[in-house]
């Protein structure tokens, strides 16, 4: 059960006279139960492509994507996506943005506002229910996007650099918030980031990808988010010797990829 990616490859056809791009080659990945899978890797190594496959925006050139045993045919509410930016609807206020997915599913207004209110509170936006989304700060907009994805009660939550545009402090708070929500909702998460520290802190499993062709070069199991949820303060987790050692190891892998590319 859960999500199974088997031998998935993606080849973007040639365009403008440039050769075809092998964005992903034979990816095997399992995202089950309450796995929090974090993807890390140099720019252009195929992370967003992998997310598009799972979301159902893109079908693999070969291989298969299975959700609870059946082939993914297209996008669906069981795999809600949180984007880095531009995904909110500026003509709706905060609560209508959060309730948007439910509206699409035909949930009646009273019920969907009730659900939306719960998630708005959960993400600390209680005072902004009726605010226009464009008047919110970047961090608040991002929380609206996360609340909106959660209302659909997806089996898998897909996030493409959801915190990439936030300042360091807001970002750390948002990391803790997402971990707390994850542990209380028991969802599978697929999370893309460029920050090694964020990846190590949040994930239960880490995949480090390499470009040309895009592939999973290394896999790690991570204990740190459980330490945090077990009560260790976030900064303490991130300052532990184990954490720092792994961080340097992963950084080395990524830098060597970047150098090979340059």
């Amino acid at each position: 059960m859960g999500l199974n990616i088997r031998q998935a490859s993606v080849i973007y056809p040639s365009a403008d006279g440039r050769p075809p791009v092998e964005a992903l080659r034979k990816i095997d990945l399992e995202i089950v139960n309450d796995d929090f899978v974090v993807a890390l890797g140099a720019s252009g190594c195929g992370k967003s492509t992998l997310l598009s496959l799972i979301a159902g925006f893109l079908s693999p050139s070969s291989g298969e994507i299975l959700l609870d045993g059946s082939q993914v045919q297209g996008p669906g509410a069981d795999r809600a996506v949180v984007f880095q930016k531009h995904a909110l609807l500026p003509w709706l206020n905060v609560i209508d943005n959060v309730a948007f997915g439910l509206k699409l599913q035909g949930v009646d207004e009273a019920r969907r506002y009730e659900i939306a209110r719960g998630f708005i509170k959960l993400l600390g936006l209680g005072d902004f229910e009726t605010s226009r989304v464009y008047s919110l700060s970047g961090g608040m907009q991002q929380r609206v996007g996360i609340a909106r994805a959660l209302t659909c009660d997806p089996k898998v939550l897909l996030m493409d650099e959801p915190l990439g545009a936030l300042d360091a402090l807001t970002r750390e708070k948002a990391q803790e918030l997402i971990l707390n929500i994850w542990s209380s909702t028991h969802k599978s998460v697929f999370f893309i980031t460029h920050s090694v520290e964020e990846a190590l802190f949040m994930g239960t499993k880490l995949i480090v990808m390499s470009p040309r062709p895009g592939r999973i070069a290394h896999r790690f199991d991570l204990p740190f988010s459980r330490q945090f949820l077990g009560g260790t303060p976030a900064r303490e987790v991130k300052a532990s010797r184990e954490f720092i050692a792994l961080r340097e190891e992963v950084l080395k892998i990524i830098f060597s990829d970047e150098e090979a590319a340059a």
């Binding site: 979301a55 996008p75 669906g76 948007f100 699409l104």
Partner: peptide, 23 residues
Amino acid sequence: AAIEQVHAAYSFGASRWQVMRHV
């Protein structure tokens, strides 16, 4: 419409008609 807005709607289970109507 930004492609992210459209993709987000589809990922919440929207039909083509709903994407047109609401996004």
